[in-house]
Design a protein around this nucleic acid. Structure first.
Lengths: 201, 201
DNA sequence: ACCCGCCACTGACATTTGTCATGCCCGGGC
DNA sequence: GCCCGGGCATGACAAATGTCAGTGGCGGGT
């Protein structure tokens, strides 16, 4: 029996995934969680063989939860399961020590398969996405540029961003300008969208 | 037996929802679809009692598919099932003749229940969301303002928007200014985010 | 010790943007 | 017929934005 934890913030899909996986005779759902902290706690409490974790979750997101699980409970293998196949997500998932990466577009049969492979010690990832992740290279943005872009997606003015980061307007403009250059955008809004698309935020 | 169609662009959650609903003894999944056009076609081909349709789908989106189904196949009742509980979505779903509206945050048991209620001719919707939808009133934007905002979410410059809509820069600025005023935003980026959040685009 | 990259800031500059007043055309309601 | 709202446009103006050059501090390599 493969003991599995499922973490996803949307109760409906979490339950649906659980009942789908529960139909498999060699898989047992031992716990569910709705956010990153609950996922880490559940791993500690139930020590599952495999944790299936969504990226988008309130509070601690799936990628940082995966990193914590990898550090604190190395016996539990992690599969990242996400809506968006963003190259940056794959890169960060691998850096966090995840053993699998699957997108929610994938055919349903693939999920149980991925769980079995990962439980057996193999790695599971989409070849096309892996190629894109490698070819596009790592995120070219510096820490500060990421901070500024993250604040920029809200849509506020430069002064808003500056205040929220305790910086000068000029500094924010410089970081934004540099980020715009690196992303090939022509506006900070476009730069923010591009960075978000690639999973760099 | 209640005959159900499931439409969702993410194969994994579509399959998961299907296997969860399939566990119910009085529910039978007769078809699945990955986009709006396929959903309409599947309704025509299998004449299900209930169609469970996601909003976000490539091509024809779930709300317009629901409207088509309501017009062309009135015997099939529609439940809109969405990730985001945006007031505008609920309003448009009701306008399209949907009989139910459920968010993916809802507890899993609620789904089968909603299917049964809707099949019985009742309406199912989240009271809190309905209240918000009514209190926030309808979308205050004119058609053109919506067009311009939709083009603005990409992040391009005013000139980009103007060209993509075959308008003058000045006209675009006027529409944007008016949309910014109506949304209470201070930037076109913020206005676009707000409008998207409310489901006005 | 030296160089280099990142961070933070300043000041200046040319554009872009948001706002406002004004005008014209059209279609719908009274 | 008249008025009103919406779409489109122009022109003008203040403010915000993007770009550039230059300064200094800090820390990590070699």
């Amino acid at each position: 029996m493969i003991r599995v934890l499922i973490a996803d913030d949307q109760a409906l899909v979490r339950g649906a995934l659980a009942s789908m996986l529960g139909l498999e005779h060699d898989i047992e759902i031992v716990a569910q969680a709705g956010d990153g902290d609950a996922a880490v706690a559940a791993v500690a409490a139930h020590s599952p063989d495999v944790a299936l974790i969504d990226v988008q979750m309130p509070g601690t997101d799936g990628l940082t939860a995966a990193a914590r699980i990898g550090r604190e409970h190395p016996s539990c293998r992690v599969i990242i399961c996400t809506t968006f196949g963003r190259p940056g997500y794959l890169a960060r998932a691998m850096a966090a020590g995840a053993h699998g990466f699957i997108v929610k577009d994938a055919p349903p049969e693939q999920l149980a398969d991925a769980v079995r492979r990962v439980a057996a010690g193999l790695r599971v990832l989409d070849p096309a996405l892996a190629a894109e992740s490698l070819s596009h290279g790592a995120c070219p943005l510096t820490d500060r540029e990421r901070d500024v872009l993250r604040a920029a997606v809200e849509g506020g003015t430069i002064r808003d961003i500056a205040r929220s980061l305790h910086l000068t307007d000029g500094t924010v403009r410089n970081h934004l300008s540099s980020a715009i250059g690196k992303t090939g955008a022509r506006t900070r809004a476009e730069a923010a969208r591009i960075a978000e698309d690639k999973g760099w935020l």
